[in-house]
Amino acid sequence: MIAYVLRRIVFSVIVILVAVSTIFIVVRSLPGNPAQLLLGPDATPAAIARLARQMGLDRGIFVQYGYFLRDVLHLDFGNSSQFGQPALSIVMARVPASLELAGVSMTMVLIVAFVLGPLLAWRPDSRLDQLVSGALMFIQGLPGFWVGVILLLVLVDNLRLLPPGGRSNWESFIMPAITLGFPFACVLARLTRDGFVDVLQSGYVRTARAKGLSEWRVLRKHCLRNMLIPIVTVGGVQLGMLFSGAAIVETIFNWPGIGQSLLNGILNDDYAIVEADIFVFAVGFVAVNFIVDVLYAYIDPRIRLGRS
């Protein structure tokens, strides 16, 4: 297990390195002087020159890369051109809001999946199953921004049931969480259903029943763990995506998270914020995946012990 975890850590670090390098390449590929881009249109030539030296723009590209990595290691992304503060601290201050939204959204997703999944698996391929599975597939395909806007129109404008946006009371979580999570809920519900059906028809469940175990024990001890495997795998990745992919939802609902700050940064040419944001996305996503990988190996011994 230790070897497995260590391997996972090494890979995670490599992925973050690649993400960070991509930031470097992208910013350097933009037209214009990188130092100027970072400081914004209002910067003085002196400030630009100073930053340019700091970034090593007068030196070769590999030196620049070296300086860049050094800065990243010091968590220094420069100051935001919009707010004048260190970009990373601005972004980090927004992380809790995004985490909350991701958390609430994931909870909803899990509830839907664990209710619908077993329900549909009870009588697989029945009329109900086919109807609901089809509906789930359809819903999954709806565009997120469209759903968000429809929800706003109906629930806020017309029915005046929910607050219009921003993060305030518990009711303000509802629409963004739904808009963010509904495609994941559909996928996970179908996956759960398939997982349940597979397990219920498996040879080892048959053996468990043949041993004379009570149906309850069969479900709890034999079905549960094996059903979790595909759910943890996919659910884990989804969680990463919920955290990192909420840019549009946050913007629609004026949610003060890192997604909103990324979009604003792009619109306002605030490259420091953009770099810091992407970095936080990458680290967050990789961290979640790492946890999921470890959890996955814990649940399925075949992964950590290797096939013999």
Binding site: S202, G203, R206, T207, A210, N226, I299, D300, P301, R302
Partner: peptide, 21 residues
């Protein structure tokens, strides 16, 4: 009856045993 009066051995033990237990 199951297990106590009648026991059964299936054909493919890899399929018949729980892989995670």
């Amino acid at each position: 009856v199951r297990g106590k009066r009648i026991g059964i051995v299936f054909q493919d033990p890899l399929d018949a045993l729980n892989p995670t237990m």
